[in-house]
Structure formats: C-alpha cells, structure tokens
C-alpha cells in the first residue's frame, strides 16, 4: 500500500453516527467526532459508557452495527497490515505470562514495523532502564503497564490509541508519562486517550468528548466542556441556620445585595466556580439520566 497522505484538513479519525449493539443493548448510540492530525483527543466517561467499545471499533477489534468510521483514511473493518503498521495500540488490560525480558519483548515487537523507534530510547522514555533485563512477569502492575505503553509507541505510530494508559502508575511514573506524551505530540503523533484522571486529560489533550450511556454529552476544548452554563459560579451562605445556594453570572452583585439585605456579613460565605471534575460529574449524571428515561 502506498502511504496515503491525508490532507491536513481531513481528520485522521472520522466517526459518524456510530452505533454498536450487543443483542438488544445499545452500547454506543450514534456518536460523531473527528480527530485532526497532530491533535490529542480525550474520550472521557464512566466505566461502561462505551469508551472502550468505541476505541476498539476504531482499532479494528470490533465490528460496528452501523455508521461510518475512517481511521487514517481506511475503514478499520478493512484495515490491512500496512494500516496496522501506522497505528500504536495500548489496550486497557493485559495479563500475558511475560516470560521474556523487557528488552527482549520490545526488540521482538520492534521487528514487526518498517521504521521502529530505538529500543533503549523507548525503554528510557517509560523509565524502565533499570528493569530492561528483568522478565516482564516479575514487574509490578504499574511497571507492566509501562511496558504496554512502550509497546504501543515502539513502531513509531502516526496514530496512538491509549486506553486508560496510566492505571497503576505512581505519581513519578505519571509525570514521566506526561513528558512522554508531550514529546510524542512534539513529533506530530495524533493521540486518542481515554482516562479516569481528569487532570491528566486537561493537561494533555487539546479537545475532549464526554461519553455517557453510549452518547456524547459534551465535546470541545477541555476548558469549555459543558458550555458557559456549566461554569456558572455558585454563591453559598448560611442564613438562620439554613444552608443556601444560588447559581449566578454576577456573584459580586449577589453578595453585595446579600450583605445589604442581611445588614451584616453573611455566615459561611463562599463563591465557587465549578472545577473540571464538577462539570464532568454533572455531565455524566445528566447523560445517564437521559439513558434511563429513553
């Protein structure tokens, strides 16, 4: 296959009205999104929301029920070996027996690809230099996960799928992981990331979509998820022993009105803007409620 150059304007991943049914259960209910070249896109959502089903359809592991999907200009259902050579896949869970060392495993997998990365550089980039000659089964869960990430990038992928890559990482490993992702981004790698760590998504991704109950309930730049309304500040105070709150675009005016009305400083006053986590939890709760009612 001749390497297909996708014009910059064409998305690397294009999903339209994607539906996946298992029997009568609809795991993915008609979602759309695009990922552009060089972009890092986060797919956020609770367990069972349809994240992994979606990502596995894009990777060619699962068949879709309907809708259209294009990954690097190819329908994953028809993706051949040349197509796979351009992908890097870090699956959600692995439990291989691991009777080979870290370096043996990476050297072996590097051999599958036309232009792999340097094995020792990759080992260093995931911080496993000291474990290079250790058998994989002797590693801790977090260290094994780092081997998974290393195997995902060894082939120098144009598009990297990371399905909850940092599960089991200690804080130092997470820091190194962020550095690695920034380096990959600097090299132009397009990344699709799913994660439970919202701070990680906020730090690493350009855009995100929140998926709940098989549908996308919000998408866009992380700082704008859920729209303006989701970020409306809340004023809270205690009045005659009762906790009160008011969401308002003009918290200053509300507080000064409150002071005027009460004639004294309001008790337990606080003005808060929803954090990313608050916005996310609200979106997910709303999404799940829709699913139940539909």
């Amino acid at each position: 296959m001749v390497a297909m150059d996708i014009p910059r304007s064409e998305p690397v991943v294009r999903v339209r009205d994607l539906v996946k049914r298992y029997g009568t259960r609809e795991a993915v209910r008609g979602i759309d999104f695009d990922i552009f070249r060089g972009e890092t896109f986060a797919l956020l959502g609770p367990n069972g929301a349809g994240k992994s089903t979606t990502i596995e359809i894009l990777e060619g592991y699962r068949e879709r029920t309907s809708g259209s999907v294009s990954v690097l200009g190819v329908d994953p259902h028809e993706g051949d070996l040349d197509w796979k050579a351009r992908l890097g896949i870090v699956l959600q869970s692995t439990g291989e027996s691991g009777n080979v060392t870290v370096r043996e495993q990476l050297t072996h997998f590097a051999g599958f690809y036309p232009a792999p990365r340097d094995v020792d550089e990759v080992i260093a980039s995931v911080g496993l230099e000291e474990k290079a000659t250790t058998r994989i089964k002797a590693l801790s869960g977090g260290q094994r996960r780092r081997v998974d990430v290393a195997l995902g990038i060894i082939g120098r992928p144009e598009l990297l799928f990371l399905d909850e890559p940092t599960t089991g990482f200690d804080p130092e490993a997470r820091r190194r992981f962020r550095e690695l992702i920034r380096r990959l981004q600097g090299e132009g790698t397009t990344i699709l990331l799913t994660t439970h760590y919202l701070d990680e998504a906020a730090q690493l991704s350009d855009r995100a979509a929140v998926i709940a109950g098989g549908a996308i309930v919000a998408s866009g730049a992380i700082a704008e998820l859920g729209g303006e309304d989701a970020r409306t500040p809340t004023v809270r105070w205690t009045e005659r022993g009762e906790r009160r709150q008011l969401r308002t675009e003009t918290p200053g005016a509300v507080v000064s009105e409150l002071v005027r009305r009460l004639g004294h400083e309001p008790e337990d006053l606080e003005v808060a803007r929803p954090t990313l986590e608050d916005v996310y939890l609200e979106l997910v709760a709303a999404g799940s409620a829709t699913e139940v009612s539909s």
Binding site: Y61, I89, L91, T94, G155
Partner: peptide, 18 residues
Amino acid sequence: AMEKGDGTLKRLAGTPLP
C-alpha cells in the same frame, strides 16, 4: 488457548505481524 485467554493474541492482532 492460553494466549487467546491472556491477551497475547489480542496484542499481536493490533500489530502488523502476519
């Protein structure tokens, strides 16, 4: 059968290994 069960085959299926 073990490689099918423990994810070895799934991992290989995602690489360009024929």
